[in-house]
Design a protein around this nucleic acid. Sequence first.
DNA 1: CTGTGCAGATACCCGTCAGTATATAAAATT
DNA 2: AATTTTATATACTGACGGGTATCTGCACAG
Lengths: 211, 211
Amino acid sequence: MAARKPDNVAKAARRDVKGEISAYKRRLILEEACHLFYAQGYEGATLDAVAERLNVTKPFIYSYYRNKAEILREISERGIRLSTAALDTALETPGTPTERLKLAVDRVTQLIIENQEYIVVYEREEKNLEPGVARDIRKQRQAFDKKLETLLAEGAAKGEFAVEDVAFAALSISGLMSWTANWYVPGGRRPPSEVIVLTLHMVMKMVSPER
Amino acid sequence: MAARKPDNVAKAARRDVKGEISAYKRRLILEEACHLFYAQGYEGATLDAVAERLNVTKPFIYSYYRNKAEILREISERGIRLSTAALDTALETPGTPTERLKLAVDRVTQLIIENQEYIVVYEREEKNLEPGVARDIRKQRQAFDKKLETLLAEGAAKGEFAVEDVAFAALSISGLMSWTANWYVPGGRRPPSEVIVLTLHMVMKMVSPER
DNA sequence: CTGTGCAGATACCCGTCAGTATATAAAATT
DNA sequence: AATTTTATATACTGACGGGTATCTGCACAG
């Protein structure tokens, strides 16, 4: 039905240029929407404004996203997905719990600074997601904290860490990293690399067994 | 003009019942609005809904508040005012920096748990305040962090604390406390008293000089 | 029991914005 | 060149909600 083209020659090898362009446009919309949602809030930002900044019109957006909520969903999913991916990479790396925790904090904090707007929007606008989607995102967030908790428990069992309550410690660490997105000002007193190091040291003190 | 009553006798001693009732009603509106802003977001919550929950109508609200933004302003001001008051009380208490920090964390964390909804709304909805008001609130928030920073610096000078960067440490501590409002679930695994103790210990590890 | 004032309700206005039906022009296809 | 498809714009609708003009009934005064 859709395929009238000669699909005999090298069909699988042909690049899906159309699809790539389409994905690129989606991405542009997402970036700009995220930027405005960050600055003015989800409800405060209008799709007309997003369109204007892209020099297009609203129906353009609607041909790439079903509705406004779907854009927010993609922002939120991106936020938690990137965070989880960064954490997973660190957790899969071989090494002691201490080494893996250090790597995790480094990676995740860096990601949070680089994607500040996504992270803030994702954490702040949860209530504007459709209930089902919100539940899903919350679950992923909990899974993130749980992975951190497991790492802490492992380290505690080996005597590398000492915490009173691993769940609380995991929450504190993920909170400390997330919090960065709220106060960090690009071009501020400290460059990202230094913020990451400070965060890393703070986290290590939080779990340190020496007292 | 307004006073046709005999104001010769004990005028100053007479209670301002009208004013008290009025203040009480303002407070009721504030509570309910905060509750809805918390659950549905500032823009998502309508004043009609607030009125309905109070079994009154919208004009009732408008005779106590000039507009919706003024309600949010009062919520935000209450949030930062209570926090600052709790911190000030602790800071003014005589004692070593360690003792004062412990007292401060205890008081502030307790307050944050007790006023969870106010704190969340105040932190999440800043962008919906009028610019001038938002600036003012932000300044107060910075003053809060600065006081904490001063205490940390004092303790560090005396060798009670060891932190790499007092400003960063202050931000981390106030962030850790604020973060509680985001994850704490009343009636959850830990009662408030235990959450406070865990927070207290975590903060002390964060500033601990021993390594 | 009759007037006066005020708390609060009823009923409305009006701007905004998400979402859409339809038009148009360019590009791809034949 | 003719025709279909695709991409995007123009122009509209409908709902919603902040804010308000106006009415009503009750408390108290005389």
